[in-house]
């Protein structure tokens, strides 16, 4: 019984980690209709920003959010404006190549600037162990869980209750109609991409004190966040949260009972089953996935 509880807690913490990285990815996909393969690299860049801001200003890593968020939001808008927008009406494959190219360019730019070394952001007490009998976790992990739930709730409120949020959803549903209603579609895409990337900005602030930063770090998180996004239903934000939790828990239990070398088999096996029997994802409804309409 103890072991089940331990693994459950481990799984929830891991799921929260996947969730907080995946939310921005699914938002960008749902609205801008771009599969952003450079998503992990935005996380990496943001983690570097956290590291340098922490080192430079000597502040708690969480405080760097005030610097990291605007910077990464601006970077996201810039990428949308100069890279994605000119390709918006071209073939989907071109956009995939563009974001894959961006990912490779970002990794190698950081390698050129900072080398392949790791940079450890001070843990600032966030690695303090919370001991709940059989289950143990770090305060930093608990914060990620809380933040992931708050982020999903916050984005939901933003999309449903604000004028800009409604404009974003309208653009996501039908770009042409939204434009006819007087929505500046180009602007909405830039803001959405910026928000999507800002989600990993938030994730970076929470993750940097727990994981060393290196140019390759984005790659560690991004594969499973694609699984999460597709499993949750492309574009479904609450679906991503639930899928992340499922994957986290499956990962923890399979890792313990079957072994680390088998756990990916289980995770991806479940993923394949979802794709076969529910290709729209666990929580995805019928969606307009065309980026031209």
């Amino acid at each position: 019984m103890d072991l089940i509880f331990t693994n459950l807690v481990n799984g929830l913490m891991l799921g929260a980690l996947y969730a907080i990285v995946s939310v921005g990815l699914t938002l960008v996909f749902g609205i801008v209709k771009v599969i952003n393969f450079a998503h992990g690299e935005f996380l990496m860049v943001a983690m570097f920003l956290v590291f340098f801001a922490t080192a430079y200003f000597g502040v708690h890593p969480y405080v760097t959010l005030v610097v990291v968020l605007p910077l990464i939001f601006g970077l996201g808008m810039l990428v949308q404006r100069v890279l994605i927008e000119p390709l918006q009406d071209s073939d989907e494959h071109i956009m995939i190549f563009a974001t894959v190219g961006l990912s490779i360019a970002m990794i190698n730019l950081m390698l050129m600037l900072f080398g392949p070394d790791i940079y450890s952001t001070p843990s600032s007490g966030l690695r303090t162990v919370v001991d709940m009998g059989p289950a143990m976790f770090l305060t930093g992990q608990l914060n990620i869980l809380i933040a992931a739930i708050a982020l999903v709730g916050g984005i939901h409120l933003f999309l449903t209750r604000t004028q800009l949020g409604r404009a974003i959803r309208a653009t996501g549903q039908n770009r042409a109609a939204a434009q006819l209603m007087g929505i500046n579609v180009s602007w909405v895409y830039m803001v959405t991409f910026g928000i999507g990337v800002s989600c990993v900005g938030l994730a970076a602030v929470l993750i940097a004190p727990l994981y060393p930063t290196s140019p390759e770090v984005g790659q560690y998180f991004v594969l499973l966040s694609f699984v999460v996004v597709v499993m949750g239903g492309l574009g479904s934000i609450s679906g991503a949260l639930l899928a992340a939790m499922i994957i986290g828990i499956v990962d923890a239990f399979a890792g313990f009972y079957l072994g680390a070398n088998v756990k990916d088999l289980v995770v991806f096996g479940i993923f394949l089953l979802v794709l076969i029997f529910r290709p729209q994802g666990l929580f995805g409804g019928a969606r307009n996935m065309s980026h031209v309409s």
């Binding site: 560690y220 890792g255 313990f256 072994g259 680390a260």
Partner: peptide, 20 residues
């Protein structure tokens, strides 16, 4: 004897297995 992918972001289940 257990392998794991080097890009793993969590090794708590391996730690648990070793302890068990």
């Amino acid at each position: 004897v257990e392998g794991y992918p080097a890009t793993n972001v969590d090794m708590s289940s391996i730690v648990l297995r070793l302890r068990e």
